[in-house]
Design a protein around this nucleic acid. Structure first.
Lengths: 212, 212
DNA sequence: TAGATTGTTAATCGATTAACAATC
DNA sequence: TAGATTGTTAATCGATTAACAATC
């Protein structure tokens, strides 16, 4: 388990993922005009326990009122702040295939502050094609393009074989984080954060349980 | 943590996800002509410990030879069997948007035995459009279509607002598993397996660590 | 005030790792 | 045989949950 050292000790990735869940639920509640919520109601909506909710929040401060619960908008803002969603993150997409296309056009990322600034692909046929308002650039010019206009995050949606090379390129271009959607293990140096989304794992894990 | 009761006790989802990782690594090794591998080499390739590899495998039997390690092809076949990848799984895709498109055309799923048999969408503009060799069907005819031609797994790639309703429809049509890609919590009755892939969680968790 | 609910501590549960006898 | 490596047990580590005093 990857952990980070913060003011309040070590925060596990389990906690961070649940915070992301609370954030979405709170946004839904706010949209529906709900003003306060208890840890047990929040827990029910996220299929966990109320103790877990309170414990997760306790790593970052005190956000509730005993006897009353949490203010929906206040807690949502607090979590938004904890997750670093009060600022924009600029991103470069590597790989303009089906998955890259889905990520690029996925609503919600942009609203959350995740903004694509570059799209790179090695296929010259694709170079120049415009997605939204962004033209696909030549992958081999990526280092130069990223020097002129750097990004925080590299999103890897290339085939497995190309992934490590592209990660290295992104790292050399000073990205601080990598989101890897390619179905292969990649490594990054210390100081660069890595998140992995492996679709095959989800399918295969379901297959396992269905087979039992 | 979801667990299942098996012959050898309870298998945690952590173990299943790692098995999926071993499987991919072994497939790569086999493709590269490697014949044997030790638990520690396999561990290095997956960024875990050799004890973890041996422990995971021990839940299902003994697959190695002391002093020598594991036969790559044999272990790959054994894991393929454990994960239920020796048979085909038929699937219905709900939601023919960007993400559905990416999932449908993703190479590798089909090779793994995951085959889409239906595509449903509520947008009448899309109905009739052919993807690969499959025409998009009207979502409101899904129950009927699935009665005529049932599937094992429902893949949910609809907007959040529609997800629970579609899950209920899929469950009523006797799917045994749900893969939820919609950014919302959904619930399924006992006896139906649920896996969740939430892309926003990956982005937001990266944002958290980058903010520290 | 009485009821509700937080924040936090201590207990429990389960996952990971270390260690080593078995054995190729 | 000696070296290597498995399979498994016991120890450790860390995450979750229960419990409850604090307090609105």
């Amino acid at each position: 388990m990857t952990v980070i050292e913060g003011d309040s000790g070590k925060i596990s990735e389990f906690t961070v993922r649940r915070l992301s869940g609370y954030y979405r639920i709170l946004a839904d509640l706010e949209r529906n005009g709900v003003h306060t919520i208890s840890s047990s109601k929040l827990a029910d909506m996220g299929n966990i326990t109320s103790a877990q909710v309170r414990k997760d929040l306790s790593y970052f401060g005190t956000f509730g009122t005993r006897g009353l619960g949490y203010g929906v908008s206040d807690l949502k803002k607090a979590i938004q702040n904890i997750l670093g969603l009060t600022r924009d993150w600029s991103m470069a997409l590597f790989g303009a295939g089906y998955l890259g296309h889905a990520l690029f056009f996925h609503r919600g990322f942009r609203e959350d502050g995740f903004v694509f600034r570059h799209i790179f692909d090695s296929d010259l046929e694709k170079v120049g094609t415009v997605w939204g308002e962004l033209a696909i650039e030549q992958e081999k010019n990526a280092a130069e393009a990223l020097r002129a206009s750097p990004v925080d995050i590299g999103v890897i949606a290339t085939p497995a074989a190309a992934a490590q090379e592209i990660v290295d390129l992104a790292v050399a271009s000073d990205v601080r984080g990598i989101l890897n959607f390619a179905p292969t293990e990649v490594s990054v140096p210390d100081g660069v954060w890595l998140r992995v989304v492996n679709l095959a794992v989800a399918f295969e894990s379901l297959s396992f349980y269905l087979s039992q």
